[in-house]
Design a protein around this nucleic acid. Structure first.
Length: 293
RNA sequence: GCAUCGGUGGCGGAGUGGUCAAUCGCAACAGACUGUAAAUCUGUCGGGCAUAGCCCUACGAAGGUUCAAAUCCUUCCCGGUGCA
């Protein structure tokens, strides 16, 4: 059975969430968040999470479903989104997927290798090998994957070996649609929001200013405290995205700097990082536009 | 005013006679993306061109020493610090 869904993609601060709510109200929809960080409780300001009021009564899914010390992966997303799409469609409503994590869209629509779950022990084991050794191993076990993978990207290398260890080889791209990945036959309609450079930059800065005013720094402090020792949370902060990483670094420095003196530095550092991120998203969008036309 | 340390690419910061258009980091720009994805990784990054190469202009300014200087010497300008 074919299911219609509406996908709304765009870079950070482009106004996706508000647009999604409008579409939902107009077309009797429910919203599924496609955002790797909004799944975590406590990350509200840094992820620009939509507020209750802004939801205007439209049900939102996949927000606040994990603790920050838990891991949520693209595989989890595919499973959750698949389930939700069925449920929402079953109610006769339109599933609307909105978010900036374009990889999740990719994973849902094109599928991921099934039967190759994360294996933490195996990863720890592989972590001990040098990058060259990792690559050599892929080369001997799956030459096809070796030919396309980036030999320097340890994270990918390790994941590839993880897949190889449970499936024998990494399934070629494109072959990961059923029986791999989602079992639904999805018919996506796209809305791509891609504001011009200058406008987006201005929106990013305006939003950042607001976030700082709303207590972003305190939020990061709280998140970090959840991990106990200061040093322990830093690695996780990095995984939670640049606001958390940069502010975390700022908090580490703060004791040594005269108070307040570095706030404008923090702003410009964050603004630059946010813009970098927006550019990465734009590059996904470029690819996406090529594919959906 | 005297003493002292320093002035290097958009920024920070190496280099202290030749292999230097100058390690590295940041920013900028381009790109990749198969279960951590705001993560992770790659390329370019003084200017010009026929771009695995060649040419030009560069290490505060002006002179000087040397076959050869960002590197040594002199004077000047600017900044930090100490003493008056």
């Amino acid at each position: 059975m074919a299911l219609s869904i509406l996908c709304i993609a765009g870079p950070t601060a482009s106004g996706k969430s508000a647009r999604a709510v409008e579409e939902a109200l107009a077309r009797n929809g429910e919203i599924i968040s496609v955002d790797s960080r909004q799944v975590y409780r406590g990350l509200d300001i840094g992820t620009e999470k939509i507020t209750k009021e802004e939801m205007r009564g439209v049900p939102h899914h996949l927000i606040d479903i994990r603790e920050v010390n838990e891991i949520y992966s693209a595989g989890d997303f595919v499973a959750d989104a698949t389930r939700l799409i069925e449920e929402i469609s079953g109610r006769g409503k339109l599933p609307i997927l909105v978010g900036g994590t374009h990889f999740y869209f990719d994973a849902l629509l094109k599928g991921l290798p099934a039967g190759a779950a994360i294996n933490p022990e195996f990863r720890t084991e592989l972590e001990k090998l040098s990058t060259e050794e990792l690559y050599a191993r892929i080369f001997s076990e799956d030459a096809r994957r070796a030919s396309e993978i980036d030999p320097q990207n340890r994270r990918r290398l390790i994941r590839a070996l993880e897949i190889i260890s449970s499936l024998g080889s990494v399934p070629p791209r494109g072959s990961t649609t059923p029986p791999f990945g989602t079992r639904l036959n999805l018919v996506p309609e796209w809305i791509v929001i891609n504001p011009p450079r200058e406008e987006l930059r201005a929106r990013i800065d305006a939003r950042l200013k607001q976030a700082l005013g709303r207590g972003l720094i305190d939020e990061v402090r709280h998140v970090r405290e959840k991990f106990g020792l200061p040093g322990q949370g830093d690695e996780r902060l990095n995984e939670l995205g640049l606001e958390y990483k940069i502010v975390g670094e700022f908090l580490n420095l703060e004791v040594e700097l005269p108070s307040g003196s570095s706030t404008s530095k923090l702003f410009s550092a964050l603004s630059a990082k946010l813009w970098q991120y927006a550019r990465h998203q734009k590059s996904w969008l470029k690819k996406l536009s090529r594919e959906i036309i």
